[in-house]
Design a protein around this nucleic acid. Structure first.
Lengths: 108, 108
DNA sequence: TTGCTTTATTGCAATATTACGATATAGATT
DNA sequence: AATCTATATCGTAATATTGCAATAAAGCAA
């Protein structure tokens, strides 16, 4: 097939998978790291930072935006991209629910 | 193309992306949740839990194993799968490095 | 208006992923 | 040995992802 059977899973599982999938590419990790480290919103600098063609970077931005991990405000000529902190808090919470279990003594 | 250009990114970025990608499917999220919640290693129960064909589940297990998130020990007839805690700690650390930045005041 | 800059979109090719039935393999059971 | 049980693998089909060049769109500057 090729299409994920999302119907069979909980909304939570699907949402966590969506976040994780969006982060599942080194270019997108790099973009997120860059956005997290900058204290201002960033536009075309990302194209200079990521060693991929502009069209490819734009596509990665789109995927991050669709997953909800970043926001993009049009600002005159350019677009101001930034972290969507609320979504990241949600992501963090979901992952912490999983990480919690690691503290249990039984870990084979 | 279709193949990710891993050469262009740091080892850290690639590793985080690999972990995230492995978690980027609801079935694999469900498998991890199940393994995290059980106090014993699990074998074929996963096939009963996940609403997908046995072959498909086996494939997902393989991907989780390849990413390093789970371990599988052959135990007689069956295979005992379990969380690879060390890898998960590594995953957790990498994500916390990113989550840390969320506390900064500037978040547009 | 004409061109420049920035970003998005389109079209395309290569490769990867998802899913399943059928089959293989390997240990357990009778 | 014959059979059952549990997993893995193979083959195949459908769809998704990655990447780029070329082009479009939208605002800015001259």
């Amino acid at each position: 097939m090729g299409a994920t059977k999302t119907d069979n899973f909980t909304q939570n599982q699907n949402e966590l998978a969506t976040f994780a999938k969006a982060l599942g590419h080194p270019a997108r990790v790099a973009i997120i790291e860059y956005l997290m480290n900058s204290d201002k919103c960033i536009t075309g600098e990302i194209v200079d930072i990521i060693p991929l063609a502009q069209a490819t970077v734009s596509q990665h931005m789109k995927e991050l935006k669709q997953a909800g991990l970043i926001k993009g405000n049009v600002e005159g000529n350019a677009v101001c991209y930034c972290i969507d902190c609320e979504k990241w808090e949600e992501f963090k919470k979901m992952l912490n629910n999983i990480f919690e279990k690691l503290d249990k003594p039984v870990c084979c």
